[in-house]
Write a protein that binds this DNA or RNA. Structure first.
Length: 571
RNA sequence: CGGGGUGUAGCUCAGCCUGGUAGAGCGCUACGUUCGGGACGUAGAAGUCGCAAGUUCAAAUCUUGUCACCCCGACCA
């Protein structure tokens, strides 16, 4: 690959909209270019990295018996009607009509399509298990795309689907794929970790994310410092804190003018924060959920949504709060809430487990400028349901080992695996006959790995002040050959030929440009090995050899350079 | 969708408050000097000031609308 012939539009300055390192460097290095929000061109160098990652993914998946397919990007709406997702999937689904006004969508994921294949061709338990995957472009019309390839609307993803005769078989296969994914990331030069995750919109029983730890990651991960428990904070649990029982006393109303936040009220009433009952109202489909947590805790909205089996939960507006509590925002409490409100619907009250049997607590009185002291759960108020609603905090005790403390770190979700069960196979009637000619619904798993995101994550984990530091297995080339002096062009051309003949991928900077420009571009692009042809070393028939990451220069013969690269490629 | 911000040359941005000839740096073209860590000089090309209305003798500048992009929140590989 000659620099002069390919297209590598390096930029001295990063575009103003780029926020994180990988976005800035991939744009500056001429790997990608934005076309519309969340939609990118992959330029030659970017595409080379994408292809490298894809090759590793294929290799590892094929090795464990997965079979590659290629599914359509545009999917008929009928298939989505069958699974019931046409109505449920929101605006993230890009819908379109063909010339005959028939409904189609641009695939954000392919459960329906793949299930359609399998139900047609798989009839017997003898045909199972099967794992089919594809590597393709997806489209999700995200609310807020950002961070370059990290959260695009259009993105390249490996999506795999497995089909099993039993849940046990899925359980076993699930672990095989989890391990394959971890091997893939390891080969890409990334340190990854598997964490428990919420199943979200895709549904299903159990799910894990494979994350790459990085401070710029969008996911917050809670991990135990004593055992191997790790979970996305959306799902993470911690031990229910012990309630320090306070003096039980009679219910007492206190005037608390304009004091709304837990902080303000706690200090005014001289009550510790954890003895406050924080009362938050959430709108849900068909009503309002009142969530109660200790004053020192935060509500985890995903846990709340799952606990009450809601389609959505969203913090209620001031007007709804007034209608339900008869008070201004800031004075809500669990005592005397209505069972339902006209025009709003049913009111249910869910309390965090930590509030079970609480006494001597304080909360709003559902009356503006009034709070209660001496509240006892059961005596003064009853809740519809108890559940774990807390957002875990750093320092919480681990639920798994009961000993360690949780730490919160950030990570990038590069893979996600789900045990789907029969979420799709049942409505779409994907069944098989067992050995007794009895019909069963196929059990499914689904697995996704973000190719572009893996590329971005690799940059997040591997860069320095000058630019990117590609791990050799996914680098756009093995060697960056720099012609530093035009007088040595013939020698450079010859070395370029030799390297290619040796099977080494080389980017040859043959441009008629100043050496400084070439060195800086080479450091920015971050190909692992740099070789310089120029006057300094040409007289001794040597090359200047630099490992990009270490930055130490040394003189080497061409033969030694080739041997070193080949040795590195063997690992 | 709610809140905030930005649209001026290929890129990064100034000019806008206080209306009056369209600017800088980088990049690009030509010539000369230079040539191993983003050179220098000279000359040059390049912008319907996002778009549309309005106010005005006059609009990049003021007003309204609209579109695009970005940030914070709700959604997610």
């Amino acid at each position: 690959m000659r620099f002069s012939q390919t297209l590598i539009p390096t930029l001295r300055e990063a575009p103003a909209e780029a926020e994180i390192v990988s976005h800035k460097l991939l744009v500056r290095g001429g790997f990608i270019m934005q076309v519309a929000r969340g939609i990118y061109d992959y330029l030659p160098l970017g595409l080379r990295v994408i292809r490298k990652v894809e090759a590793i993914v294929r290799d590892e998946l094929n090795r464990v018996g997965c079979a590659e397919v290629l599914l359509p990007i545009v999917i008929p709406g009928e298939l989505w009607e069958e699974s019931g997702r046409w109505g449920k999937y929101g605006k993230e689904l890009l819908r379109l009509k063909d010339r005959n006004e028939r409904d189609f969508c641009v695939g954000p994921t392919h459960e329906e399509v793949i299930t359609d294949i399998v139900r047609k061709f798989v009839r017997s338990y003898r045909d199972l298990p099967k794992h089919l995957y594809q590597i393709h472009t997806k489209f999700r019309d995200e609310i807020r795309p950002r961070f370059g390839l990290m959260r695009g609307r259009e993105f390249i993803m490996e999506d795999g689907y497995s089909f099993h005769a039993s849940a046990e078989d899925l359980d076993q296969h699930y672990l095989v794929i989890r391990d394959a994914y971890q091997r893939i990331f390891k080969r890409c030069g990334l340190a990854s970790r598997v964490v428990e995750a919420d199943t979200g919109a895709i549904g299903g029983k159990s799910s894990h994310e494979v994350v790459v730890l990085a401070d710029t990651g969008e996911d917050a991960i809670a991990g135990c410092d004593a055992c191997d428990y790790a979970a996305n904070v959306e799902r993470a649990e911690s031990c229910t804190p012990e309630y320090e029982s306070a003096n039980t006393s009679d219910l007492q109303k206190v005037h608390t003018p304009k004091l709304k936040s837990v902080e303000e009220v706690a200090s005014f009433l001289k009550v510790p924060k954890h003895q406050m009952i924080k009362t938050l109202l959430y709108l849900r489909d068909g009503g309002v959920v009142v969530a109660l947590v200790r004053g020192d805790a935060e509500v985890n909205e995903i846990k709340l949504k799952n606990a009450v089996d809601a389609e959505f939960v969203t913090l209620a507006d001031a007007n709804t709060v007034r209608l339900v509590t008869n008070a201004e925002v800031g004075f809500a409490g669990p005592v005397g809430l209505p069972k339902s409100v006209d025009g709003i619907g049913a009111i249910t009250v869910v309390a965090d487990d930590a509030l079970k049997g609480v006494s001597g607590a304080a909360s709003g009185a559902n009356e503006t400028d009034q709070h209660f002291l001496g509240l006892s759960e059961g005596r003064d108020f009853k809740v519809t349901q108890f559940a774990d609603l807390r957002m875990v905090k750093a320092g919480d005790r681990c639920v798994r080992c009961q000993k360690g403390a949780l730490k919160i770190v950030r990570g990038i979700e590069v893979g996600h695996i789900f045990k789907l069960g029969t979420r799709y196979s049942e409505p779409m009637k994907a069944t098989f006959l067992d050995a007794n000619s009895k019909e069963h619904v196929i059990t499914m798993g689904t697995y996704g790995l973000g190719i572009g995101r893996t590329m971005a994550a690799a940059v997040e984990q591997n860069h320095d002040a000058k630019g990117m530091l590609w791990p050799l297995p996914i680098a756009p080339a093995h060697v960056h050959l720099i012609l530093a002096s035009d007088e040595k062009r013939q020698m450079g051309d010859e070395i370029y030929e030799v390297l290619q003949r040796e099977g080494i991928e080389v980017l040859y900077d043959d441009r008629d440009a100043r050496p400084g420009v070439k060195f800086n571009d080479a450091d920015l692009i971050g190909i692992p090995y740099q070789m310089v042809v120029g006057k300094k070393t040409a007289s001794t028939n040597h090359l200047e050899w630099t490992e990009r990451a270490a930055g130490v220069k040394q003189e080497k013969s061409l033969t030694d350079c080739i041997a070193t690269v080949k040795e590195a490629l063997r690992h």
